[in-house]
Each structure stands twice: as structure tokens, then as C-alpha cells.
Design a protein around this nucleic acid. Structure first.
Lengths: 207, 207
DNA sequence: GCCTGTGAATGTGTTCACAGCG
DNA sequence: CGCTGTGAACACATTCACAGGC
């Protein structure tokens, strides 16, 4: 199966494997089997094997996958082997929470600067990150930042995205409830927590 | 195509259509076409038509879909036509942000109580929602709550999920980076922002 | 002429079953 | 004998193309 196109769903699961590998590396073993890893993550063993096989032969028959090696390979594939700097725009409730959240660091991603339009917030520091005036976003060009997080209210995301892109950002995590139109070169991943929450009742049998 | 099984991906998009419909209802028109709606949401017209057709004939050829009617139908399908009460567990950064976030209300979901283990937080009110001691979660049984949000640190989600389920919760939005094992009757939707963010560099061409 | 609804065709992802290595 | 890697079978989702209603 070498050299076949990697399914997007496989890419989506790569960070999940990283999460599992991190867990097992804190435990004991040198090796994990697809079965053990899958069980921990709540998926099937053959899915794990198939996913990993897209990138070459990663494991050893009869033994499993070497935790450390697989972690490194996985990080390299996701380009998480080098540090990525990120900018966050919109220091509201969600934006502040994201700033305070340490979870990105474990993947080698660091938020180095934030922007907001509210005078009350500009100049302050949240979790060690300086909040600057949104009208100074052009300065981003000077910095080595390739990722952006948009956590502004609905309706405002498109113009922020445009600014981020013209400031050289290559990938955007969009937390606003807006569809944003971008050039093909730019990758957008959108999360709308309210939308995900809203489909939960569908699955609940009538009370 | 009547009476065929509704694809999960279609259900996932229903709240998206609701988002679009809300936008257009604030504008002018009685009707929207699949083309207009699709363009606003960043998807294809035929996807919109196919999705909606699973639930019967919703539109009028030559005219489009009636905004108000489609909104009502959509809400009924998602069971968002009645109010749902929710509980949130874990009033950290993310949990507080979610409490303060108004976005759920527009879907008819209301967080009515929160729990945390930190004495500093217990007894306080965040955005009008009282924070109670996590050891009192059994009291949930008394209330009419069917949804739960888990926003505790990684590693703690499973035990919280167990408690929520034994307190009668039917659906869980899991924001913690944990896989949680639940009975078949219970629906879990998991969001791991860090994980989604972490696959962004994969799509960015080498700098 | 415009727009919906939908079978058919296509594309994509998952699951299976097993050959082959350690 | 356990576990990986993978073609093949299957399941699911998207896209197309167009018949038919307004």
C-alpha cells in the first residue's frame, strides 16, 4: 500500500495516536500493539494498522510498535518536530481560555501573541501572552508565525482571516461560527462547539 | 429516497443549516435556494438538497426552501424544538468560557448548573450559573437535565462521565482529551481542540 | 427558466481475512 | 503463535445528471 494517497481521516487520527503514545510512554513499555493502542483510544486495531501503514512499515510483527520511534515518526509526519508559533485573535471568553490552555504545547505549538479590539484588554498580558491592538496586526509579517487562531464573535471571522493571511499566516483554526473563504494554499480547520453540542439531542431517545 | 437511513454526516450538517437559516431570517427573504444557502455555508447545493431530502420534501421547485418552515422542521428533527437543560463539570479556563458563551442558547440549550472540585470556585456564580461541589452531583437526578459537558483536565473524564450517567444524563459533550467508555444508550460527542490544531501543520507546505 | 428531489455513478473510508515475518 | 501489513470486499458519502414541478 506504499505511496498511496493518505486519507484525510487518517491524518485526522494521527494526533490521536500521538495522544495514546504519550500515555504509554509515561507507563512502562518499549512497545505497544495496535490492539492495546486501539483499545485505549476507542477505535479498532485494524484501523490503527491501516493508518500507520500509509507511512511505511512502522511496526514489528509479533511485537508491535516501538513507542518512541512511532512517536517521532508521527510528529515528523504532522510536522510537529519543529516548534510552530501561533497568533490568537479575539481575547474574549473562549480566546482567553485558549490562551490559558497548555494543551497545545505538548504538540509543539506555542501562542506567542494575541490581538483584540477592546481597549480594556489591549496592553494586558494573559498567561504571559501580550494582547495587542488589532490594528497592528500587519506587524505579524515581521515575526516567524505560521498559524492563527480566530476566536472572535460570529460575523467577524472573515475579515480577521483576510488580515491573517495577508500577514503571512498559512493555517487557521477557526473557532467562530462562520464559514471563511480563503485561497487554496491556506488550510482552515473550523470548530463550532455549539454546533456539535446542538446535534446531541438528536441521538437521545424521546424522554 | 423517503424512509432511507439518514447518514451521520447529514445529521452533522443539520445544525449548520440552522446557522445559515438564522442568518437569512435576519435578512429579508421568505425563501432561500439550495444554491444561496450552500454558498453561505461553504458547501455544495446538491449536498444541501440531498441532506434535506432525507426528511421528506422540504422545498418548492422553482422557488427554494421557506426559511421559517425549514427552520422549524430542522429544529424538530434535531429535537431542538423543546428546551434542553445541561450540566457542566469542570469550571477551569475552558469550562468558564463555555459557561459564559451564549451560543448554546440560540439552539435552545441552557446550562443550568455547574460542578467543580476546587473550594475556591464552589459557591460562586459564573454568568449566573451556580458552581456546586462535585461530590453533590448525585443531586442531578432531581433535576430535569439530559445533557452534560465535561471540561475537566485529561485523565479525569471517565469518572465524571460515569457519575453523569448514573445521574441520568443521556448525552455528553466531552471536551477533555480522553476517550470515555459509555453504555450504548448514551451518546458522546468529543472535541479536542488541541488535537484539531495539531494537524494544521501537516497541511502547510514546508517553510 | 429556475429550482427541487433523487436514482445512478463515482469516490472515499472501513472492515475483513490472511499471508508472512519475528 | 502473536502481531503487522495489505489487497479485496464492503459500507458509506458525495457528486452527477436530469426528470418533473412551479
Amino acid at each position: 500500500m506504499r505511496y498511496r494517497k493518505v486519507p484525510d481521516e487518517t491524518v485526522r487520527r494521527l494526533p490521536l495516536y500521538l495522544r495514546g503514545l504519550r500515555f504509554f510512554s509515561e507507563q512502562s513499555p518499549d512497545h505497544v500493539s495496535s490492539k492495546i493502542l486501539a483499545e485505549f483510544l476507542g477505535i479498532n486495531p485494524w484501523q490503527v494498522r491501516k493508518d500507520l501503514s500509509y507511512f511505511g512499515e512502522m511496526g514489528t510483527p509479533g511485537v508491535g510498535y516501538k513507542v518512541k520511534t512511532l512517536t517521532n515518526q508521527n510528529q515528523r509526519i504532522l510536522r510537529l518536530d519543529s516548534v510552530h508559533n501561533a497568533v490568537l485573535v479575539g481575547v474574549g471568553n473562549l480566546g482567553s481560555a485558549v490562551l490559558a490552555y497548555q494543551g497545545f504545547r505538548t504538540y509543539g505549538i506555542e501562542i506567542v501573541v494575541a490581538y483584540d479590539s477592546s481597549p480594556a484588554k489591549i496592553g494586558s498580558k494573559i498567561n504571559g501572552v501580550e494582547v495587542k491592538d488589532i490594528s497592528e496586526m500587519w506587524q505579524l509579517n515581521e515575526l516567524d508565525i505560521d498559524l492563527g487562531i480566530i476566536s472572535v464573535p460570529g460575523g467577524a471571522a472573515q475579515s480577521i482571516a483576510d488580515e491573517l493571511i495577508s500577514a503571512g499566516i498559512k493555517g487557521i483554526l477557526n473557532l467562530a461560527p462562520d464559514y471563511i473563504r480563503v485561497p487554496k494554499k491556506i488550510k482552515v480547520i473550523s470548530i463550532d462547539i455549539a454546533m456539535d453540542f446542538a446535534r446531541l439531542p438528536y441521538y437521545i431517545p424521546a424522554s
